[in-house]
């Protein structure tokens, strides 16, 4: 049997799997975020991008399979490791103080499951089309996004989920260097900056979408693209006016 398939037998092996699958998801997230930012280039750009993805079945399904496998492995082995750690200290301390553990590191086992739930919701909402707006178009991704994020609580769910993602990424993106043994005294300090930077970028980019849409702001490209079309039914007119000014 290939040795890599035996890795899961030990705690360090499991951790390596969690780290590598984390890196995969992290790569996916970067692409996902960049793709979604197309929304600010108007409906045509975003819909075209979506159509392109769908038209390239190997790319779409290849990505889906890799990501899905990663998600499942990541969750499965994290749970096994968490169980191992739970067993490792049957009697808790009456008093306990943390010195270096931070919100991000301590909340991995909270942010992780939350993100898991969110992913399910996200897929139901925007991929499978069970949208609270009641409207879902297979081709007009732009409209789906715009209509959803104009609803404040729906936007809020996404924003909160992104903050959770931020916590998870901030620790995860540092942690995987350690777990995979990627360290060097000269560059160790950079790993934290990297984690912070990449977290800000991904989470920032992602949060931008619902928050900007909710605020009613439209880029010139969006306006240009939207002018010929009828304005979205429920978009408040005054909101647009403010921006046009």
């Amino acid at each position: 049997m290939p040795r890599v398939l035996l890795l899961h037998q030990t705690s360090l092996g499991k951790k390596a799997i969690v780290a590598v699958t984390g890196v995969v998801m992290f790569g996916f997230l970067t692409g996902h975020m960049l793709g979604n930012l197309q929304v600010f280039r108007g409906p045509e750009a975003l819909n075209h991008y979506a159509a392109l993805l769908k038209a390239t079945a190997p790319l779409l399904w290849g990505t889906r399979i890799v990501v899905l496998t990663s998600v499942i492995a990541h969750i499965y082995f994290s749970m096994m490791l968490a169980a191992q750690s739970g067993d490792a200290r049957p009697t808790p301390y009456a008093k306990r103080e943390n010195n270096t553990a931070n919100l991000a590191s301590m909340s991995m086992r909270l942010s992780g499951p939350t993100l898991g739930l969110f992913i399910v919701y996200h897929l139901l909402h925007l991929t499978l089309g069970f949208s609270p707006t009641g409207v879902h178009s297979e081709t007009d991704v732009y409209a789906n996004v715009m209509s959803s994020f104009s609803i404040w609580w729906l936007a809020a769910i996404y924003i909160v989920a992104q903050l959770m993602l931020g916590l998870h990424l901030f620790h995860g993106a540092w942690s995987f260097f350690q777990t995979l043994g990627l360290n060097h005294p000269r560059y160790n300090a950079l790993r934290r900056y990297f984690a912070a930077g990449i977290t800000l970028l991904i989470v920032g980019g992602n949060i931008l979408i619902p928050s900007v849409i909710l605020s009613g702001y439209r880029t010139q490209a969006q306006l240009d693209a939207e002018t010929p079309a009828a304005p979205a039914d429920d978009a408040p007119v005054e909101a647009r006016n403010i921006v046009v000014e």
Binding site: K15, Q84, S85, D87, N99, T100, A101, H171, S175, T179
Partner: peptide
């Protein structure tokens, strides 16, 4: 029966 490392750095 030890737990595994999640890089909190409390040990350090």
């Amino acid at each position: 029966g030890f737990g595994h490392c999640t890089n909190h750095r409390e040990c350090e």
